[in-house]
């Protein structure tokens, strides 16, 4: 734990600005260290992409955030938009789920990858070389040629590589990867994950990896944060969380993916549907689906607490899992 904290989120609340505001994120805390990967995992609607947007400072106009978002000792929540914008792309960059949608369909790849270099003052030959270098670095074959292609002319894997090149173009310290492999073929997924790991090793970039897919996450995450209905259910080192979950939701999640859990060989889906932050159940949001739910779970909202060193759980009965 000697690595520097690149991102530290504390008690982040994101709510809609309505007459009846909804807390989409309700007191989320997490850390991402330089050179390491923190995975944020949760079902659709759990608010995990909103967290990514909040860190980028790109929340929709209709939402507002309170709490702390600290980049490398610097609180960035609430600073003027102009200063925030200067950090975007250069300090923190983002990779999106669908590379085809994330690329402007009417601009050549090179122009999009080179946009930040251009804004940095590069022109002409130097700019062109910079773009080719970036594309080559993310493993795009024949980069000179590909720079002149339009997004629709490339394969899904190459497009995602271009998106990664674009994200790396500003030399960021923190990379937010929002489901970067979900839209890709399984064979391509692995290669993109390897590429991210390689970039991280070379540059010491911190990665916040947002995913719903525990299988993908188990390959790359150093730390794991499990989000349920806009709250942290559990967090800790990935290996230890997956091998010994301290929250019934994490346990159920792990069991739903055969290859992750040692406990079961078959897929065991979680009963019920994911709670939405807009209609969050009372007490522990997971209680309607929890096999261990008791009376207190309905009444009292469990606060995340350190159950054993490095392991945080928001279950009233987290200690009981230790004995399993």
């Amino acid at each position: 734990m000697t690595d520097k904290l690149a991102l530290s989120v504390r008690d982040l609340v994101v709510s809609t600005d309505a007459d009846a505001p909804v807390r989409i994120l309700d007191g989320v805390s997490l850390d991402v260290r330089s050179g390491r990967t923190t995975a944020l995992i949760g079902e659709s609607g759990s608010g995990k992409s909103i967290l990514g947007s909040a860190v980028m400072g790109l929340l929709p106009d209709t939402m507002s955030a309170q709490g702390e978002i600290v980049f490398d000792d610097r609180q960035v929540l609430g600073i003027p938009e102009r200063q925030r914008r200067a950090l975007r792309g250069r300090w923190v960059a983002m990779i999106f789920q669908d590379p085809l949608a994330a690329l402007n369909p009417s601009q050549r790849i090179g122009r999009q990858v080179g946009e930040l270099l251009r804004r940095g003052g590069l022109r002409g030959k130097a700019l062109e070389e910079g773009v080719v270098r970036l594309l080559a670095r993310v493993g795009v074959p024949r980069p000179e040629e590909r720079a002149h292609a339009f997004p629709h002319q490339l394969s899904g894997g190459l497009r995602q590589r271009a998106v990664i090149a674009m994200a790396l173009s500003g030399g960021p310290r923190l990379l937010i990867a929002d489901e970067p492999t979900t839209a890709l073929d399984v064979t391509v997924q692995k290669r993109i994950l390897d590429l991210l790991a390689e970039m991280q090793r070379d540059d010491g970039i911190a990665i916040l990896f947002i995913s719903h897919d525990l299988r993908v996450v188990s390959h790359i995450a150093d730390d794991l944060v499990v989000l349920y209905a806009g709250r942290v259910a559990e967090s800790g080192p990935a290996r230890s969380v997956l091998s010994k979950p301290l929250h019934p939701y994490t346990r159920a999640l792990a069991r739903s993916v055969p290859s992750v859990s040692a406990a079961s060989a078959v897929s065991d889906p979680i009963p019920g549907t994911a709670a939405s932050p807009a209609a969050r159940p009372s007490g522990c949001a997971f209680h309607p689906r929890c096999p261990l739910a008791r009376e207190i779970c309905r009444r009292e909202t469990p606060q995340p607490r350190e159950v054993v060193p490095g392991r945080v759980s928001a279950c009233h009965f987290a200690e009981e899992f230790l004995d399993d």
Partner: peptide
Amino acid sequence: MTDDVILRAPAVVR
């Protein structure tokens, strides 16, 4: 699927 359910909601919320 990411959180598009929530992302799309604002039109109504607004």
